[in-house]
Structure formats: structure tokens, C-alpha cells
Computed example of a mutant assay.
Amino acid sequence: MVQRRAIVNRWFQPDEVPADAAVRLFLLPYAGGNAGMFRDWLPLFPADIAAQAVQPPGRLDRRDEPLVTDLGPMTEALGEAIAAELDGRPFALFGHSMGGLLAYRVAVLLAAEYGTPPILVASAGWTPEGFSMPTLEQVQLPQPELVSWIVGLGSLPPVIYQDPELLELTIPPTRADLTACARYVDDGAPVPCPVISYTGRDDPLLTADAPESWNGRSPEYLGNSAFPGGHFFIYAAALPIVTDLTRHLRRLAALTSIPGH
């Protein structure tokens, strides 16, 4: 049991959460990202929201593990890790870009295979329809062209792609994740809980009406909040997103304690 928990907890930072928090929240990074992208987010959540950032395999402290280039195995592995981590408290999933897609698929899997749906899926910068998924041709671009394309999506801190050492760490998982996205085939599966979305007003990957596609996937779509910036708008919007998420999580968690909900 100790060994299994140690393996499972490689997925989450921090690896443990306070026992008195009312709600658990798992934060999923964008393609090529890691748990570090949420370092500044974690202190913003109040004490009753226990947030953990997801660390995908093949990067940073999990560099000894192989990268995953297919969303199916990634969904199953993360779903298993979250299911093993749950302790009866209500929980939610938040993801940006590929993280939003993964949050959606993990929510579907947790409900179908474990009978434990989240109380909320929050998706930033990704929608089921109206989102321009990468192509395999883009994924295979030479490194300078790939970097130029990513930076052109807007609002990404330039330091990430200007440091050669950071590039060496970032490009392999980015290609792997983008490959998984390019191979993804949408099956229209409904998500078994309310959904809320967040977008950048100048995101070149989303059409203007893309967020409305959640209406056909969720029993309760809670709407979209648009922020200034491109695809990586979340770096500047952390506080308002955390504030909005906290409000919805508290309301939905309270509903779960009411008989019949």
C-alpha cells in the first residue's frame, strides 16, 4: 500500500492535502506543461479548497517515465490516480487547453468506471467544438518553427522559450502532448456534471461561439468568462479565475450535502 501511494502521488503536487478542507480540486496543465504552471495559483485558494496540481509523466521529477502520445492511456492513468486519491469529499477538475480536454475525458471515465463523477469540470482555453486542434504536421515542425507557432498563440511568458535549457526540457513533452491532441477523435460523450469555461478574447484557437458547445455536453453549463489575452491568458487571470472557481465549488459542494442532490 505504501509503495502504491508513493507511485500515485507522483501525479500530484502537493502530494497531500489538509484533512479539514471541504472540496478537492485537481489542476491539469496545458500541452507540454507541468505542475509548476500552477505554483502561483495554489496559495490563492482559500483553506476550504484543497488544490493539487497534476504532474504528467515524462517531465521534471517524472522525467524517468516515458512520455505518452495517446490521450486514451493518459486518461486511464490519471483517472486511476485520482480515483485512488479520493476520500469521499466532493472534488472538481480544472484544466487549461489540453488540460481542459483531459479534465473532460477524466470526468467521463471516473463516472463510467468508478462511479465517482466530479461536482464540476472547469475548462480554460478548450471547448469540445470550435477549438483548432493541432495537426500532426504542426507537431513535427522543426523546433524553431514549432516554438514560433506556440509563442504566436499569445500571452505565453517568453522566458519559457528563450532559454535553451528550458527548451530542452519543454519541447519533448510538448511534442508528445500535441501528438496526443492531434490523434484525439471526439465521440461526443456527455460530461456527468456541471461545466464552466474560461477563454482569452484574442485566442486564435477558439471561434467566438466555441464555449456554447458545452451546452450539448453537460447537464448544466454555467457559462463562460472571457479575459484579455491570447491562448495563454490564464497567467494574467489567475486571481479572478480562482475567485470564480471558489464561488462555484462552495455552492456545488453545499448541494451535494442536501438529500436528493
Score class of each variant (00 low, 15 high):
43 P>C: 07
176 A>L: 07
158 P>E: 12
181 C>K: 10
215 N>K: 13
166 L>Y: 11
54 V>E: 07
61 D>L: 01
132 S>T: 14
160 I>Q: 09
7 I>L: 05
141 L>Y: 03
140 Q>V: 06
150 I>L: 09
96 H>V: 05
259 P>M: 04
128 P>H: 02
194 P>F: 10
47 A>E: 12
73 P>M: 07
234 I>T: 13
69 T>C: 11
26 F>E: 06
69 T>I: 11
198 Y>G: 10
133 M>V: 09
221 Y>L: 02
131 F>R: 01
210 A>M: 05
35 A>Q: 02
146 L>V: 08
37 M>K: 02
50 A>C: 00
237 A>P: 15
201 R>K: 15
170 T>G: 00
209 D>P: 03
128 P>D: 08
186 D>K: 04
174 T>H: 06
14 P>R: 00
134 P>N: 05
80 E>T: 10
90 P>H: 06
74 M>I: 05
99 G>E: 10
61 D>T: 01
150 I>N: 04
143 Q>Y: 03
175 R>Y: 06
193 C>P: 09
45 F>E: 13
156 L>C: 04
86 L>D: 11
55 Q>C: 04
71 L>P: 11
66 P>T: 13
51 A>E: 06
134 P>C: 05
11 W>M: 00
222 L>W: 11
243 T>E: 12
48 D>H: 07
232 F>I: 02
147 V>M: 06
88 G>C: 05
102 L>Q: 08
92 A>K: 00
185 V>C: 13
177 D>M: 01
76 E>K: 04
148 S>H: 15
9 N>L: 02
50 A>R: 00
101 L>I: 02
202 D>Q: 14
7 I>S: 07
142 P>V: 14
38 F>R: 01
199 T>L: 14
142 P>D: 09
168 E>S: 09
16 E>F: 07
112 A>Q: 11
248 H>V: 11
25 L>P: 03
121 V>L: 15
99 G>K: 00
57 P>S: 14
3 Q>K: 05
207 T>P: 03
80 E>K: 03
227 F>P: 15
121 V>P: 01
233 F>I: 06
85 E>I: 00
181 C>I: 15
70 D>G: 02
200 G>F: 02
154 G>V: 12
152 G>M: 06
71 L>Q: 12
193 C>G: 05
259 P>T: 08
39 R>E: 09
